[in-house]
Design a protein around this nucleic acid. Structure first.
Length: 309
DNA sequence: CCGGACTCCTGGTTGC
DNA sequence: TGCAACCAGGAGTCCG
């Protein structure tokens, strides 16, 4: 489902197309896609019509395009915020292209260099959303602005301002399972079920390993593997299983061919050959190798804490 | 702080 | 063949 790599592919695809473009008109086909906009659909339409976009940004799975001219709608700093949820897509279309059956919102843009363009927000399950939101100062980098509804989201591990030290400290203080921690967007953002399972497999860590019992070395390995899998997926254009995730041009990514654990239940572990197992955890599937990934026992009393190898 | 249950939601798949 | 039950899970909220 759209996680950091998929959202970044969308952001990068959007950047040359919408930066500097002005919204000429907007159609809201389903108001449920505005659930994160505080105000009725009319308010959204009013605020976005005439807006000009700056270069789109991203934090974790949230994407936003700051507005160049917020004072026009009586705001100091604002952005169009997009979250893809489970099935959201942002598609670039020529102005007279047919409207997708599942399109929820459609923006008619005019770009000073490229001319007219349509941006369609397509979302089967309507867990995603668009909203106009005020930008507020981020709590760690002076001068950095972030939408209010994103301000509680931690920086993602590909963000240059992500603090490894802060992450390790907060992780160690948690009293929970490691996968739960990876999926907690207020601790580290951008990771969803697919990349959590992949990073844990690569790190040989069981999903329910207590964070408090994870050695610093293992935590470092985990963060390194998280970055590795996110970068690799990004380079391959994201993970697509079907038409659920597409880039702005409607194309699939290729990372599904590189999965080692997610969705591989019953298939041999690429490392040891033992079948990958799928278990229900946190109301979702967790995929892991029962041989490579075991819960490391608590250090007995004065033992040098070693992980399972 | 923690974790579980529940909510939002629909198309594709499975099962009878 | 038809229809219903089931499944996918990001993120927020509520509750014990």
């Amino acid at each position: 489902m759209p996680e950091l790599p998929e959202v970044e592919v969308v952001r990068a695809g959007l950047e040359p197309a919408i930066t500097g473009a002005t919204v000429r008109a907007v159609q809201v086909f389903d108001e449920r896609s505005l659930r994160r906009h505080c105000g009725p659909a009319e308010d959204f339409v009013e605020r976005i019509t005439g807006a000009t976009f700056a270069a789109p940004r991203r934090r974790g799975k949230f994407l936003w395009a700051p507005l160049d001219n917020p004072s026009r709608i009586g705001m100091d700093a604002a952005a169009l915020v997009v979250h893809l949820g489970m099935s959201g897509q942002v598609l670039l279309r020529v102005p007279d292209a047919p409207i997708d059956r599942l399109a929820r919102i459609s923006l008619d843009l005019d770009h000073p260099l490229h001319g007219p363009l349509r941006v369609d927000f397509v979302d089967q399950r309507i867990f995603g959303s668009m909203a106009i939101d005020a930008l507020v100062p981020s709590d760690d980098v002076p001068g950095d602005l972030v939408p209010g509804q994103v301000s509680h989201i931690a920086r993602d591990p590909l963000d240059p301002a992500f603090s490894d030290a802060t992450f390790f400290a907060r992780l160690a203080r948690r009293n929970t399972g490691v996968k739960r921690a990876l999926l907690d967007q207020t601790l580290i953002s951008g990771i969803g079920n697919i990349y959590a399972d992949e990073a844990l497999w690569a790190s040989r860590i069981h999903y329910d390993q207590p964070t408090a019992l994870l050695s610093r070395a293992r935590a470092k390995t985990l963060l390194a593997e998280v970055r590795l899998v996110l970068r690799k997926a990004l380079a391959e254009g994201g993970t697509s299983f079907d038409a659920q995730y597409l880039n702005v041009n409607g194309e699939s990514g290729y990372f599904s061919h590189s999965l080692n654990a997610y969705g591989q239940q019953g298939l041999p572990c690429p490392r040891c050959g033992r079948p990958i197992v799928r278990e229900q955890f946190m109301n979702r599937g967790s995929h892991f190798c029962p041989r490579c990934q075991r819960v490391a026992p608590a250090p007995a009393t004065a033992g040098a804490g070693g992980g399972a190898a």
